[in-house]
């Protein structure tokens, strides 16, 4: 293709269509000549419904200038299908565009359409590997994660697809224990999507998850991602928060428990806060108050005490919320 399609004899048979014919538009965008030229011809092509190799080139040209042009993506997909382009080839071709424009919805949706049409576990497994390279560049990319979860659920192959996920998540959390996307992914794999191969014993699975998240809390006690995971795991399995009172109380005091005293007595169920822990952890106080609230009776007063200290001292930005919790608990008492 030469610089402008308007100068290209190969496009001479297409009538370009200007964006606004009889309207003096409000709030117009100052496009480059190249963009205006490409989209004028694209509108022309849409009008005739042409699906051809040159249309594939044209859509790619537009996508590279504006990856959010969903109509260009839509027409590209229809053209790929209509020309019976090998879908693996199209996926391959789109790898570079995906890594360049990874924050764009359409990039990932196009791959999803291709994979759906491909119906190949091999392709799905390769895609999971490709996504790892993308997530290396941007470990919290929303659409990439959402897409990864869709692949796992859609192709649903325990040995080829699901089996590697927990280890992958553990790598990511090893690198950054505060990566909430990785925590969410773990919840998706372990709890939300049915029962994984090897996780049939649900009590054992829950024990494993609790000990995993407790270790991560011990490492960095003020990490809301880990606390949310812990709460989620307990709620999902209808496990009372109070089963973790001993653990949580290690994080609600101002001082980490002195080490060395009972070095030979290692309580695996209740890993203590790290030496650098900044205590008490607000999330632990909230958790303990929830335990007291649920217990009711005399314990309610202890919950109210904690909420007051959160409201007035330890988490003042959420003062209104903690006061609401007090009001709410008292109205139910």
């Amino acid at each position: 293709m030469s610089e402008l399609l308007a100068d290209d004899p190969e496009w001479a048979d297409v009538v370009p269509i200007r964006q606004y014919e009889n309207v003096n538009p409000i709030a117009p965008i100052f496009y480059s000549e190249e963009y205006k030229d490409a989209t004028d011809y694209f509108r022309g092509v849409l009008k005739t419904g042409e699906m051809s190799p040159r249309v594939l080139q044209l859509t790619e040209r537009i996508i590279r200038m504006n990856p959010a042009h969903y109509t260009a993506w839509q027409h590209r997909y229809k053209t790929v299908i209509s020309l019976k382009i090998p879908l693996e080839e199209e996926l391959e071709l789109m790898n570079e565009i995906a890594t360049t424009f990874l924050k764009t919805y359409q990039v990932w949706h196009h791959r999803r359409l291709l994979l759906t049409a491909l119906t190949s576990i091999d392709a799905a497994a390769r895609e999971l590997e490709f996504l790892k390279t993308v997530l290396r560049a941007d470990a919290k990319n929303y659409h990439t994660w959402s897409f990864r979860q869709w692949i796992l659920a859609h192709f649903n192959d325990e040995e080829r697809l699901w089996a590697g996920e927990r280890a992958y998540i553990e790598d990511l959390l090893e690198q950054d224990v505060r990566n909430n996307s990785a925590w969410h992914h773990r919840f998706f794999v372990v709890f939300s999507s049915g029962i994984r191969l090897g996780d049939e014993d649900r009590d054992q699975m829950l024990r494993r998850e609790l000990s995993f998240v407790k270790e991560k809390i011990a490492l960095a006690p003020n990490n809301p991602s880990a606390w949310n995971y812990l709460r989620g795991a307990l709620e999902h399995t209808n496990t009372p928060f109070s089963t973790l009172t001993t653990f949580v109380e290690l994080y609600t005091t101002s001082q980490p428990p002195s080490r060395g005293r009972d070095e030979d007595v290692v309580d695996l169920d209740n890993p203590p806060p790290s030496a650098g822990a900044q205590l008490p952890a607000v999330a632990a106080l909230e958790f303990l108050a929830d335990i007291y609230e649920k217990e009711g009776g005399d314990a309610s007063a202890k919950a109210v005490e904690i909420w007051k200290s959160l409201a007035n001292e330890k988490d003042v930005i959420r003062k209104k919320y903690w006061e609401y919790r007090i009001r709410d608990a008292l109205s139910k008492a």
């Binding site: 709030a27 965008i29 990856p67 959010a68």
Partner: peptide, 16 residues
């Protein structure tokens, strides 16, 4: 509104 949006808003061409 009056003068229009600079070229970098081409990314919003599908969000006019």
């Amino acid at each position: 509104l009056r003068q229009g949006f600079p070229e970098r808003y081409t990314s919003q061409d599908a969000s006019q």
